[in-house]
Design a binder for these strands. Structure first.
Lengths: 139, 139
DNA sequence: TTGCGTGCAAAGGTTTTGCATGGCA
DNA sequence: TGCCATGCAAAACCTTTGCACGCAA
């Protein structure tokens, strides 16, 4: 079989990481740190290359939150319901906190954009910027 | 007057650049290159600082296109419809076209975010990424 | 005079790449 | 055996920062 992708030790480790860790979002350094603490370190370049490959395969989503912060990856999973279970993100401009969003309203708004404005929203890249509750309270 | 912002030569030059160049989008290096060719070079750090300031003031929009490509700025000062009311933007990931959005749905969605999620949406920084009608048709 | 603006170089951080080595099929 | 994966370090890249000096108010 010529998939162009080999089943290696690291690849298995990464898949296991995605499924065992509850964390929805993770960065390259998160992954590296995890395996370093397990005394099974993986080179940074390898993680970048594998994760990028998996994004292409559709196993992971990649989010660009900000120019100067690391890219955020999300495991979509083996289940195929993933495409309906899209998630959007709110980012606080003050504290930088990332809020996971998936509610009816954003879905219906996305549908509105599509039907009325002929614009197909991309959850992977769209980030809602604003001020979170805590930071708003401090002001 | 204590605005905290001084009216300098470079600031005027930049404003003129925004209004004379028809280009909707530009990067920091675009700006630097432009003034270098005019034999009136501006330091890179200065451009970064001024542009960032103008984003805060609401004169410019800043788009993060990709993690490894430079930030993209857009002059919105002269768009009158942005002054009369809040304005959101859709950006096509394929052709780069920018669509100005002005509808009830986004306003009510913003209100929903605020009441239900305690998140105050910032129109200046929030950009909806996706695929526009024309590019969707081509596929 | 005070405080912001500027320029340069250096630093900071993320991501990519070159190259030799090792592993999968 | 051929091709892909890996690791390390270096490079590339965008962006920010420190500091001394210049300029606006």
């Amino acid at each position: 079989m010529r998939t162009g992708i080999y089943k290696t030790r690291h690849r298995d480790d990464l898949m296991e990481y995605f499924e065992t860790t509850g964390s929805d979002h993770f960065t390259v350094s998160d992954v590296c740190e995890y395996f370093r603490q397990k005394n099974e370190p993986i080179g940074t370049a390898t993680v970048y290359r594998q994760l990028e490959k998996m994004v292409t395969e559709g196993i992971l989503n990649k989010y660009i939150i900000d120019a100067n912060s690391p890219a955020c990856f999300q495991y979509i999973g083996s289940h195929e319901h993933c495409h309906e279970d899209v998630c959007y993100h709110c980012k606080c401009e003050k504290c930088g906190k990332l809020i996971h969003l998936h509610c009816e309203e954003i879905m219906s708004f996305a549908k509105h954009l599509e039907t009325e404005h002929s614009f197909i929203l991309d959850p992977r890249r769209t980030v809602f910027y604003g001020i979170c509750a805590e930071c708003a309270g401090k002001q």
